[in-house]
Design a protein around this nucleic acid. Sequence first.
DNA 1: TAAAGTCCGTCAAAGTCAATCAAAGACACG
DNA 2: CGTGTCTTTGATTGACTTTGACGGACTTTA
Lengths: 248, 248
Amino acid sequence: MLTEERYATILRILEEKKAVTVLDLTQALGASESTVRRDLAALHKSGRLYKVYGGATSLDNSYSSAEEDMKTKNDLFPEEKIAIARKAAGLIKPKDFVYLDAGTTTLHLIDFLTETSAVFVTNGMQHAARLSAKGFKVFIIGGAVKAVTEAVVGTEAMESLKNYNFTKGFFGTNGISPKSGFSTPDADEGTIKSAALLRCKEAFVLADRSKFNKISPITFAHLSSATIITGRLEDKKYRDYTTVIEGE
Amino acid sequence: MLTEERYATILRILEEKKAVTVLDLTQALGASESTVRRDLAALHKSGRLYKVYGGATSLDNSYSSAEEDMKTKNDLFPEEKIAIARKAAGLIKPKDFVYLDAGTTTLHLIDFLTETSAVFVTNGMQHAARLSAKGFKVFIIGGAVKAVTEAVVGTEAMESLKNYNFTKGFFGTNGISPKSGFSTPDADEGTIKSAALLRCKEAFVLADRSKFNKISPITFAHLSSATIITGRLEDKKYRDYTTVIEGE
DNA sequence: TAAAGTCCGTCAAAGTCAATCAAAGACACG
DNA sequence: CGTGTCTTTGATTGACTTTGACGGACTTTA
């Protein structure tokens, strides 16, 4: 089999399956492991696939590595997060102009969107990419990109926000407490959350049970300034401070 | 068997199978290895097939069926694009403040970056994600996200640009011609390119051979306003209009 | 942390290449 | 018909490229 034929076969398989192991390829090509590795190295070098540990992936999952990073975070209460995201997605109506905060819970929200006439603004790069892929009109906030979360923060981001007046905003949080309100560990992200929240007619904070009665270093809003969406509210006292929507 | 008959047979087989080995052809033609090699060399020289190690492949590399814009573009001159990207990456020095235009060639550039003290600004979401993953300090331009290319465009993007003064800028292009300069098919992207280029102390346009003597609808810069980085310059006249850097 | 799996460099063997050369055929000319 | 010239062909050669195996280093997983 010619080298070019092997290349073509590898790319064809990748196009179909998006990812493939070296072992699979040795069998599909009838070539040795060495040869497959060399092929992958060549195709990687010429930019036609991504080489990853154990095999290769197609080019179009350019966010895959970052998503993996975030998925680890996802493990905490996945079912609850999903339920919350679904509930929140249901709140979005036609013609809404929606701010979507970076974070895993709000990322899930996108999967449940059906309303296509809404317009989105976000500071999450993955959020923007996914919304765009789903056909929504989406704007991204400009500014510095934070490495781990791929959220946009900083003074430029603050400037960008000034131009918008949102009908609804959806936010993640790390801590909720009566005294400290909604809080987050990162000062930059906190500043953005705070500024964005002020520009929303209605603001919603998405939080699973693990977030209640926790305090993170930076408070970005008082409890009264946003409606909480959660799975099942264990500590009823929060109803005294703000509206709470419970998922199924 | 006549020479022309052999040529015809080889081309017919190739059309059908897309790739063939020398050995196969010696049997199909009843000719010696030497003759087959000579035939392939002649057909290669006259541009009717590609000679590869071990045999030959047909010209229409329709191995990969019709794909998205980005991917088909990628296939055109992958090796040259890589060489150009490597060359361009080498130009980035410590402390540079770099604008990186959205597009496939500039995306490849990221793979060759070694200088970690440089700071980047980009309007490509994939670019931002990848730069961030590699540990660079990166800012993304705010604005509307274009679905297909995942580039950020629009008036907000223009506003964002006003704050920056770049030491170097790297741009893609769709057409290069003496009269129409650098041109692109999309008006929004053209506007951004144009605005970003004006804010660069040094501007570089990355272009493979297929871009020369082509004109796209929207001109975003004159030839004199940027240095061209290409693989091998076929049309020497461009040296009269601006600086040209050739890759290996 | 140990075991399994994966990666990459090195090496020898197999395969492939281009150059060279002599033989065979084509063809014109005397 | 024989001769010389030119072209095409197939064999041979040494140089080069690709391949698969192996071992040590590294990474992932349990």
